[in-house]
Design a protein around this nucleic acid. Structure first.
Length: 491
RNA sequence: GCUGAUGUAGCUCAGUGGUAGAGCACUCCCUUGGUAAGGGAGAGGUCAUGGGUUCAAGCCCCAUCAUCAGCUCCA
């Protein structure tokens, strides 16, 4: 193995390096620790296969993973972080909190949203749809299966075929599940002639797409075979691009802020002009698009990293990576140019000059995938959702059977106020009810006995704070409604 | 897809060739309790699926499916 590198790096004029630890001499770019005595804390982590030179066509080697630190404290902190991440694992929390499941009998990578996950999804989707309408998008719905002919025109049947479910034959035609929503939106755009006065046309859809993922690649909600994109396509004139991109970034910021993510990083992926032949679209279009994206980011005053050669073949893009509660990065939102599809579908609009022009198309997804966003959300909050998102917002704990009637009147008043309530009327001691509901991470538990029933009050136990004493029911309702209204992350 | 591991009750897991187990959850009974687990009884299993070896398989062998840790690829 080392001979491969010796041969590769020992061309005339090339500098090579050798490292020595005691009797062990290694041919390596380095650096190595000067002495193994510097390594005060280390641990073997795992054993796994890895492809020779990272290419799956090459044979696999056994790779032994380990980690080392200058002292025990640093190592302990590292493992504490890993444990914290494991404790927040959305797959584990999804089971404990009964949010979603994946069923072997139904197939890998296909998500079942249970009632408690479903209500969160409904809140996410309602918010997204209303926000789209407020921001000038039109909502559309497109079919889940469409004829193979369409995917040939869009080019997916060619360059995306490995990721698509195979066609199903029906009458005289082959139909295929959609891996993307773009062609559907394009057909709606094309259905009527467009004037420059109609632009920009912004079509949005929470579209279910299906992609074949290789068997070893699925991971909970984060990598699946069927998912929902909060997808939109904006058809506009070249002059409108910059404003549209700024609006998309504003929108993305609003999404992240609303769902509790304070931090994010932005990357601008551009082409590599030296590799010209690998990109569709004219030079003019590329430089206009890259300039627009850059100007938009500068106008927003957002710091970003430009990565050349990372663009899709059909256009440059902005990727927004959010930073979660543990400092991990997640790629979700994306704003992409597409020079390919407007040409393939021969899109046009009539300009001020009375001539036909080709519109520019921007593709954007903010949650990215509703499933993945939900997975990240679960881990970010460790399952302790803010009040407006919590599937069960209030848990009711009658102290004894005598207080169940009062608890029912409290329940109906909370429900009338629009709150999601769980009444624990089991034949259990109060302590057991508090424990069980606490483990469900319910934001508020209301304990009620003789004193509360007499005063039309509730004893409030707030998640993470404990017993906060009795207050009038009306007061609690007003407070809870306000926090929901504000989408507060505090209780 | 590849390498390695795993798959037993709703959940978490024990069981290493000879009658399938525990805790929690569930049902019923007793208990009516003031801020994180009261007590008792009961019910619950094609031991992932399909083959094979054996007098006998949850356990050994093969294949398939799924999951996990990685690799590779992505929203």
């Amino acid at each position: 193995m080392k001979m491969h590198f010796v041969e590769r790096f020992t061309q005339p004029g090339e500098k090579i390096s050798l490292y020595r630890n005691g009797a062990f001499v290694d041919f390596c770019r380095g650096p190595h620790v000067p002495s193994t005595s510097r390594v005060k804390a280390f641990k073997v982590l795992s054993l796994a296969g890895a492809y020779w030179l990272g290419d799956e066509k090459n044979p696999q080697l056994q790779r032994l993973y380990g980690t080392a630190f200058f002292n025990k404290k640093e190592m302990d902190e590292h493992f504490a972080r890993l444990e914290e991440a494991a404790r927040r694992d959305h797959r584990v929390l999804g089971k404990q909190l009964d949010l979603f499941s994946i069923q072997e009998i139904a197939g890998a990578g296909l998500i079942f949203w249970h009632p408690k996950g479903g209500i969160i999804r409904k809140i996410m989707e309602d918010w997204m749809r209303e926000e789209c309408i407020r921001r000038g998008y039109d909502l559309v719905f497109t079919p889940h299966v469409m004829r193979h002919e369409l995917w040939k025109i869009s080019g997916h049947a060619g360059y995306y075929a490995q990721n698509m479910y195979t066609p199903m034959e029906l009458d005289d035609a082959d139909y295929q599940l959609k891996p993307m929503n773009c062609p559907g939106h394009i057909l709606i755009y094309k259905n009527t002639p467009k004037s420059y006065r109609d632009l920009p046309v912004r079509l949005a859809e929470l579209g279910n797409v299906y992609r074949y993922e290789r068997s070893g690649t699925m991971h909970g909600l984060l990598r699946v075979r069927g998912f929902t994109q909060d997808d939109a396509h904006i058809f506009c004139t070249p002059e409108q691009i910059e404003d549209e991109v700024v609006a998309c970034i504003d929108f993305a910021e609003a999404v992240l802020k609303t769902f509790g993510f304070a931090e994010f990083k932005v990357e601008l992926s551009t082409w590599d002009p030296k590799d010209r032949k690998n990109y569709a679209g004219s030079d003019d279009k590329w430089s206009l698009a890259i300039d627009s994206l850059e100007h938009a980011l500068q106008r927003k005053g957002i710091p970003f990293r430009t990565i050349s050669g990372e663009a899709a073949f059909y256009g440059p893009k902005i990727d927004i990576k959010l930073v979660d509660a543990l400092g991990r990065l997640w790629q979700l939102s994306t704003v992409q140019f597409d020079f390919n599809l407007p040409a393939r579908f021969d899109l046009e609009y009539v300009g001020e000059d009375g001539e036909r022009h080709q519109p520019v198309m921007v593709h954007r997804a903010l949650f990215g995938s509703v499933e993945r966003f939900f997975g990240v959300l679960i881990e970010h909050y460790a399952g302790a959702f803010p009040l407006w998102l919590a599937p069960m917002q209030v848990g009711l704990v009658p102290i004894s059977e005598k207080h169940i009637d009062y608890a029912k009147t409290v329940q109906s008043q909370l429900q009338i106020a629009g709150l999601r309530v769980e009444l624990d009327d089991r034949n259990e001691k109060m302590n057991a009810k508090i424990r069980d509901l606490t483990m469900q991470k319910i934001p508020y538990l209301l304990v009620m006995g003789d004193k509360e029933a007499a005063a039309n009050a509730v004893s409030v136990r707030t998640r993470g704070k404990g017993d906060e004493g009795s207050i009038p029911l009306e007061e609690f309702i007003a407070k809870a409604k306000k926090l929901v209204e504000e989408k507060s992350t505090y209780l």
